[in-house]
């Protein structure tokens, strides 16, 4: 079963170069290990939430506005998609994903991917 891990962290926090490389190393470790086990389906980092754009269609008119969708204390910073046996395995991986500098706030939301009768647009 595939799970999406949404990484939320505070983008305004200032990290030292040492902390940054520790975060990179932690991601690298998760990526390497999940790839090695053949369960890594996707992972991407995102640009800051200030670069987000919202698209809505109202009465046939396309409305483009500045994003993000919601102002939150922590911001979506990236995601993983992992193919896990069950939720417990997914939660265990989620705990290994770094969410910010050492000790700083952050969290990972774990959501199962919906199985579509036919794979809807394309699969990931």
């Amino acid at each position: 079963m595939r799970y999406m891990m949404l990484i939320y962290s505070q983008e305004n926090e200032t990290a030292t170069p040492e902390q940054m490389s520790a975060i990179f190393a932690a991601h690298r470790a998760v990526l390497d290990e999940t790839q090695h086990r053949g369960i890594l389906r996707a992972a991407d980092p995102l640009e800051a939430s200030a670069t987000a754009t919202i698209v809505r269609v109202q009465e046939g008119e396309v409305l483009v506005t500045d994003g993000p969708f919601a102002e939150t204390k922590e911001q979506l910073a990236g995601y993983y998609i992992l193919d896990c046996e069950d939720l417990d395995e997914a939660l265990a991986w989620a705990a290994k994903i770094p969410t910010g500098c050492a000790g700083a706030a952050g969290c990972v939301e774990v959501r199962p991917i919906r199985q579509m009768p036919t794979r809807v647009p394309v699969n990931g």
Binding site: L6, A42, E109, V110, P112, I113, V120, N123, G124
Partner: peptide
């Protein structure tokens, strides 16, 4: 790529503080 997600009722949120893992129900 592209995927649909299960509703937010199925979401769990994981936080690690002082090396302890805290899991709560619901979306972020």
């Amino acid at each position: 790529s592209g995927n649909a997600l299960q509703p937010t009722g199925t979401a769990k949120t994981v936080r690690v503080r002082d090396s302890k893992t805290l899991t709560t129900d619901g979306p972020f």
